[in-house]
Amino acid sequence: MWEILEKAAKENGLVAAFAIVGLVVLASGLISRKLTFGRVQGSAIAILIGLALAYVGGKMSGGTKGLADLALFSGVGLMGGNMLRDFAIVATAFEVHPEEARRAGWIGAIALLLGTVLPFIVGVGVAWAFGYRDAVSLTTIGAGAITYIVGPVTGTAIGASSDVMALSIATGVIKAIIVMVTTPVAAKFMRLKTPRSAMVFGGLAGTVSGVTAGLAATDRKLVPYGALVATFHTGIGCLLGPSVLFFAVKAIFGN
């Protein structure tokens, strides 16, 4: 019986991956609602479970591709691989309304630029302090501090190693979780009251899941304004990360 199941999963890798990821997302939604009372968004929990499974898979197989190195879960490699990941990210651009974005005006654009450059500088600085010296690793970790999507997209483009990529994603995921949990607490300090303030927040905080979850827990009306700016974040990060920011790091730190 087990052999038949194993064979079915192996020969239908991508289909099996859809089922596995669906189960993980379902479990995360339950954990989000029952254990954290919606405070921590389901998607953040799902990503953490994914990273935990990658750890288990990596320990079991001794390989570098986490769960995807186990034959039974090889389809996860295709579903979460570069092709489908970029395809899905490009599709999210469809949700952006440029006419509303234009209303955010120059302050939204400035926040967006600051929200890309500041975390990058902090990320590169911390990576440098911990002994990373090559421009590719420094840039990838810095990009991870922008969002957990910009990190791996940048890392793939400039050829970072898998462990640096994982570190970059971990940085972005931890950042998203901190934003989700602390936004309601820090809302007063950040003056989150008006649509304009939410757009500034969306630009600077970056991570879409963090921004939307954080704003939802603060004031439901502010969510679309923050998300609007934040949805540009990944695009701008993916545009600047492997280009301008990488060149800047290369110019400052050499190879």
């Binding site: 997302v25 990658a54 990596g58 769960l67 979460g80 489908l84 791996p152 898998s162 462990d163 994603i169």
Partner: peptide, 12 residues
């Protein structure tokens, strides 16, 4: 979900 699958194959 794709990002979750991506997380699953990282070198954690």
């Amino acid at each position: 979900p794709v990002v979750v699958a991506m997380a699953m194959q990282q070198n954690v």
